[in-house]
Design a protein around this nucleic acid. Structure first.
Length: 98
DNA sequence: CGAATGACCTATC
DNA sequence: GGATAGGCCATTC
């Protein structure tokens, strides 16, 4: 509440449009949704992310995967995402928008 | 109603 | 990329 329900829908819509082999950060999602600075609200929306959207393609700005979700790394690896040894996504060529 | 918590970000070193 | 410091918003206790 306190925010247009369109926001969550917007986030889900953007996440659903993420092509395979590409990942986006929360801040990037918030900016694409037209609400820069609301990255935290994006996280809340993602916490309630329904099935049907590739939520595993959403990572933090540091390239860190979701805590508690061990399968996310495997899912991203299967899509061609390069992972560093410490468990962070290689944000080198993933910084570009789509 | 105030403090704590969380799928966080940006800036700087 | 890694570590530290400050700020952001909504939900939960």
């Amino acid at each position: 509440m306190h925010l247009p329900a369109d926001f969550d829908a917007e986030i889900y819509d953007i996440v659903a449009q993420i092509p395979a082999g590409r990942v986006v950060t929360y801040g990037q999602l918030a900016r694409l949704a037209g609400m820069p600075g609301y990255a935290r609200r994006v996280g809340r929306a993602m916490a309630a992310a329904p099935a049907g959207i590739p939520s595993h393609r959403v990572v933090s700005a540091a390239g860190r995967t979701v805590p508690g979700w061990t399968a996310q790394r495997e899912l991203l690896e299967a899509e061609g995402i390069r992972f560093r040894r410490n468990g962070c996504v290689d944000l080198a060529h993933l910084r570009d928008e789509f």
